[in-house]
Design a protein around this nucleic acid. Structure first.
Length: 584
RNA sequence: GGAGCCGUAGUGCAGUCGGCUUAACACGCCUGCCUGUCACGCAGGAGAUCGCGGGUUCGAGCCCCGUCGGCUCCGCCA
């Protein structure tokens, strides 16, 4: 090794020792007659002093040092003179008096500074990702990621889980996200798909009798990106036989207890609270409610069903609902602010947004449509007091939830109502099995088409069928979800039929799974967690890109390598693929 | 597929009202000075096709149209 100790590990106890360090020149302070260098390696920083009295040759060499030169330094650890300690630095009580300097490699001037003082354009950061990743705060994210992944492996190993790899080149499946496709050279005209998740394989492993499976699995979905979504991402994927929902809840609660204890020394309280999907939508307008603060949705449909305000009354008459949120202390909102809120509501699908500014009197464009008694009843129901702002949306339940759920989150953040250091885990349970797709004019699976209904006779009332599906939510972020699967070929066939998948299609797409289920499949179920999202949340990172070493932009481009890129005609010919894009 | 915001030295930004000159400032960089700094200091210097293309105008970093890229959001993401 070209170093015998890490920079960040040096302490008073090492005083007098001669050590060899290797790292990068983090900063250089040249006083002419004395040069200070902050030497950085993964462990941290230590101050190195070059003094011509110690070695004239070294000193001359040290004058050449620049930012990010990679160097090896041999020197004596010494206690800093009194009054010259640096409390900001873990190694601030000591410094290293350089005896030998070996410049391992030089560096061009960096395209951007590695400090945190300035937010460098992400474009530039991603193009020079290897430099970006030198920044200690980014490295911390990856150290956290490593430790969490290790804690997961240790825990699941101890619980008797087997880590099994499943194929990356697999079969395209209908339902779900768009697939990334890989053309087959050997089989002209056919394509593999990269897995959206190892779903079917892990179920097959249950048929194989593995009983407890897990995998830290790469997954791929060709959908548009968000700040918490990348085209390729990692899941902690698991599946178990001979279990039901309670077994999953308990296992996962123990797993998170283990992770938080081992990695962060935080003791979690279990069991985690549970909430049905229906309740989440009703109270928070979300299937992943952030329960750390209030501003819950309140239904006032019954109070306005006969009121003079046609928009409200008609909505209720047509089977819609009128709900509101009470925003504390915002009665002084300006016309502009209210207009912006209305605009946001409209972008989310609402026709409008009604408001009441609760001052000595209620100021509202719709006040004139209500009797004083009705207004009093509304405010009372909303729990509004003087100084509050009350917002109403009248629409179909999904729109009301979308708009008020979003406004609630925005206000929570803007008004600082969200306690930063609170960890609110929440099981969201009893998801609907199916939802009607207007686009496809058929039912589609809310979770996936292998999810077990709670009731075998779900087909009698598909719209209201409840699934044995669950999500784990932390502070309003969906960490992961899963379900108990169907292990009965007949029940599976029935679900396919309700989904409008013909027996022929089912045979073509999932025939192998249906066949496998004819050979004594065990009852089974599982869950998968988005590892990147988990680290993102726990690291408090700005974007999910900050916990992925080489992430892609919103257009799914890797700015470092310039992927995706054109390939040669020869490659395309070999793959029996022709591009339909017309060249310039 | 749609909406919004952004794009000016290596980096972060000012310039927003079309005409203040040589496009300002800070950090970084280069040169010189400096033996106790730690975001070292001091003096000087270099560095900008104002993302790209077109248009309006006597005149465009600034206005208009298009385009490319980045970010955020909606749709999408079983």
């Amino acid at each position: 090794m070209m170093k015998d100790i890490d920079c960040g590990a040096l302490r008073k106890e090492h005083a007098g020792k001669v050590v060899t360090l290797s790292g990068w020149v983090h900063r250089r302070r040249d006083h002419g007659g004395l040069i200070f260098v902050d030497l950085r390696d993964r462990s941290g920083l230590v101050q190195v002093v070059f003094d011509p009295d110690t070695s004239k040759d070294n000193f001359v060499q040290a004058e050449k040092l620049r930012s990010e030169f990679c160097v090896q330094i041999k020197g004596e650890v010494s206690i800093r003179p009194a009054g010259l300690e640096n409390k900001e630095l873990a190694t601030g009580e000591i410094e290293v008096k350089a005896k030998e300097l070996n410049i391992l490699s030089t560096s061009q001037v960096l395209p951007f500074a590695l400090d945190t003082r300035t937010d460098v354009d992400e474009n530039v950061r991603l193009r020079y990702r290897y430099l970006d990743l030198r920044r200690p705060e980014l490295q911390q994210n990856f150290i956290l990621r490593h430790r969490i992944t290790k804690a997961v492996r240790d825990f699941l190993d101890q619980e008797g889980f087997l880590e099994v790899e499943t194929p990356m080149l697999t079969k395209s499946t209908p339902e779900g996200a768009r697939d990334y496709l890989v053309p087959s050279r050997v089989n002209p005209g056919t394509f593999y798909a990269l897995p959206q998740s190892p779903q079917i394989f892990k179920q097959l492993l249950m048929v194989s009798g593995f009983e407890k499976y897990f995998q830290i699995a790469k997954c791929f979905r060709d959908e548009d990106l968000r700040k918490d979504r990348q085209p390729e991402f990692t899941q902690i994927d698991m599946e178990m036989s001979f279990i039901d929902t309670e077994d999953i809840y308990s296992l996962i609660e123990r797993m998170f207890t283990h992770i938080f204890d081992k990695v962060m020394g935080i003791k979690l309280t279990t069991p985690f609270p549970r909430m049905t999907y229906a309740e989440g939508m009703r109270r928070f307008g979300s299937d992943k409610p952030d329960t750390r603060f209030g501003i819950e949705l309140t239904d006032v449909s019954d109070l306005v069903s006969n009121c003079g305000f046609k928009v409200f009354a008609d909505t209720v008459a047509k089977g819609g609902e009128v709900k509101g949120i009470c925003v504390p202390g915002c009665a002084d909102y300006t016309r502009k602010q209210l207009d912006d809120l209305t605009l946001l509501a409209q972008e989310l699908g609402a026709k409008g947004l009604a408001y009441m500014l609760v001052k000595e009197e209620v100021k509202s464009p719709i006040a004139k449509f209500f009797t004083p008694e009705e207004i009093k009843a509304l405010l009372e129901r909303m729990g509004a007091k003087e100084g509050d702002l009350v917002l109403f949306v009248a629409d179909k339940p999904t729109t009301v939830a979308a708009v008020l759920g979003r406004l609630r989150l925005d206000f929570g953040a803007e008004l600082g109502l969200i306690p930063e250091n609170q960890l609110n885990f929440l099981w969201v349970v009893d998801f609907p099995l199916l939802e009607w797709s207007e686009e496809e004019k058929r039912y589609v699976a809310v979770h996936h088409p292998f999810t077990s209904p709670k009731d075998k006779d779900f087909d009698k009332d598909p719209a209201n069928a409840v699934a044995k599906a669950y999500d784990l939510v932390l502070n309003g972020v969906e960490l992961g979800g899963g379900s108990i699967r169907i292990h009965d070929a007949e029940l599976q066939a029935k679900l396919f039929s309700v989904l409008g998948i013909s027996p022929e299609d089912a045979e073509d797409k999932f025939g192998f799974l249906l066949k496998a289920f004819k050979f004594g499949p065990p009852p089974h179920g599982g869950i998968a967690f988005g590892l990147d999202r988990m680290i993102w949340l726990l690291a408090g990172a700005e974007s999910i890109r900050d916990v992925i070493a080489f992430p892609k932009t919103q257009k799914a481009v890797c700015l470092l390598t310039d992927a995706p890129s054109l390939v040669s005609e020869k490659q395309l010919r070999e793959l029996h693929v022709a591009s339909t894009v017309v060249k310039e």
